[in-house]
Write a protein that binds this DNA or RNA. Structure first.
Lengths: 342, 342
DNA sequence: GCAGAGGCTCGAATCGATTCGCCGACGGCG
DNA sequence: CGCCGTCGGCGAATCGATTCGAGCCTCTGC
């Protein structure tokens, strides 16, 4: 707060009351007569007092009122991902009215030393966005600080988490596709492991992805009896989806499934590009339920996650942690929204 | 930070050194022998000390190391606007490595009382995103705190700002369109005033928009001798752009200009929907230079703002303010990128 | 008129570190 | 052998508020 010349002590002196009384006038946490309060406030205005120093108050109170939000490892990528952004939105809009601040923290990349902020910023608790969980150095840094955290999209193995029943969702989608008679389903998955590069994934193997999200969603499809005829792993980007689509179409699938809506949108564009009619020639489905107003006439068949709601739940969990509570892991349902693409 | 049983005092005692020496071992800001330092660090590890309390350190240092970022009034809208997000991205990625934290603050809506965070959070300086500037209560709250701020996209009238030469850019675009022989240009502008609703704007009037961004961009077009045959004001959303496009096409323009790329994308979709070939039947141009990988074959003619760079400049300005400097307003060039749509 | 009961105010301790000036000891040099 | 410079460690003040128990003053009720 820099050169703040005037402190509460000055105000108290000017108002002719004690420091403690002046404090009460601002915090309102105690009995104080209206007259005295006005006197203090007037003196404060007179002196141009900025209000109680938040840092000093935090020190005394033992809580900073700040919740950290650790974005995915690749900061730039997180900022391009509408799902992360909507999580963030849900978090901020929940925290702000409750008087909590949101501190944005980039997760350190794979094994770099974590940013100073991660280790040195004042926070009462933190929310870990799915993508960030993979960076071991980030987790280690947080644990070293003994900072309570809630994961969003994570497994909830090491503490409270907010997660969606994505396996169930994918099973529903798989069943939907089978009902529609699709047997040749090609899938553009999320990366199989942290830091994997885009490209084909061998099918017919029973290997499970190392990345939990990818694994769960794939499991869901398989539970529905859908065994992909081709797979391609890629990031949640339209570009990657287009590339995946071009590659996957070589296998002549009758349905394309993207593990995110952005990917699915890319698949759809690739299908259109190939001159295929959707859904007559090929079906396309995604995951997330984000707004894609630019798809034109089509609305994507997708599994809708209550994204903002998950952000809200994570924020509430973090607040609970901040005040010493121990929130439980929350699991939310995803809903199959059938659009015009299947 | 809550139950932190162990403090630096405990560590010092355990290590058999004084408090001041223990502090030096962590901060490194003073002469200390390697042996002593190791001894302290070992004692700290032994006790499970989390490191110096950031809040206490901030209080003593007089700086919190946190920069606030005030997002546009309509939080949800800001989070959907890729430009805001990329500003934020540029800001975060600049601040983090320099050891500054980014505190996300939703601006209060029009005339509501500002969120507690705005007035009570610990910050050394703040960045005001363009959209947030309009909310008077937000500005008032910040001013009352005497918090130094840098505006992004603002006028820079009341302090340092980072701005783009958008008028010049629009002039270049106007000239480009005239060179291509366009005389009937319809424009989908940003809102003319804070809180304006979407809809037609009367042309032929000399009225200037109250919103500075809208005004500057329109001025630019006019300087190039482009007088719109029709105008529609709307938010920076694809949906709004589509609606604007449908309405504007009634005037049979030969070119459509959107004041943001999202709007322009909507215009393009509306044009396609109307069966018009782009650019043969109608030209489309935007503003911002964001990635729109889903436009298919087309690449939008647009004015590229160096968005991340502007975020970086704003962040550096904020840091300068935080340490007591007085950064100047920075103005960056926009570049006309000619795509396939004109 | 007095005792009791509230309602306000005030003192003082405390939150956990940073930092500056001072001092002791040790080593080099005359 | 003694003096001075220097390096490293120590004490104490300080950052700016919050908060609780103690005390005072006034009002009420008998």
């Amino acid at each position: 707060m820099g050169r703040s010349a005037t402190t509460l002590t000055d105000v108290a002196r000017a108002a002719g009351v004690s420091l403690s009384t002046a404090s009460l006038a601002f915090s309102g946490a105690g009995p104080i007569s209206a007259a005295t309060k006005d006197k203090v406030l007037a003196a404060a205005a007179e002196l141009g007092y900025r209000g109680p120093d938040p840092v000093a108050a935090s020190l005394r109170r033992g809580r900073s009122g700040v919740i950290g939000v650790v974005m995915g490892s690749a900061v730039r990528r997180s900022f391009r991902d509408p799902v992360s952004i909507q999580f963030l939105d849900g978090i901020v809009t929940t925290l702000a009215p409750k008087g909590y601040g949101t501190l944005l923290l980039p997760a350190s990349a794979a094994d770099e030393t974590p940013d100073a902020m991660l280790t040195h910023a004042a926070m009462d608790a933190a929310v870990l966005m799915a993508g960030a969980v993979t960076s071991t150095s980030t987790i280690a840094a947080l644990r070293a600080r003994k900072l309570p955290t809630v994961q969003i999209g994570g497994a909830g193995r090491q503490g409270p988490a907010v997660r969606a029943r994505d396996k169930d969702g994918m099973r529903m989608l798989g069943e939907h596709l089978r009902e529609r008679g699709h047997t040749r389903v090609a899938v553009a998955t999320l990366p199989w492991s942290n830091g994997a590069t885009s490209g084909p994934v061998e099918v017919g193997t029973t290997r499970r992805p190392a990345a939990p999200i990818t694994a769960r969603r794939l499991d869901g499809l398989r539970e529905a009896g859908v065994e992909p005829v081709a797979m391609w792993q890629c990031g949640s980007l339209v570009e990657d989806g287009i590339a995946a689509g071009r590659a996957l179409l070589a296998e002549r699938p009758t349905a394309l499934v993207g593990f995110s809506d952005l990917i699915a949108a890319g698949l759809l564009l690739a299908a259109r590009e190939a001159g295929l009619r959707v859904p007559e020639d090929i079906a396309v489905a995604g995951f997330d339920g984000i707004d894609l107003p630019w798809l034109g006439e089509d609305t994507l068949t997708t599994l809708v996650q209550p994204i903002a709601e998950m952000g809200r739940l994570a924020a509430e969990g973090a607040i609970s942690l901040a005040v010493g509570g121990s929130p439980k892991t929350v699991t939310v349902d995803v809903e199959l929204r059938i659009g015009t693409t299947t």
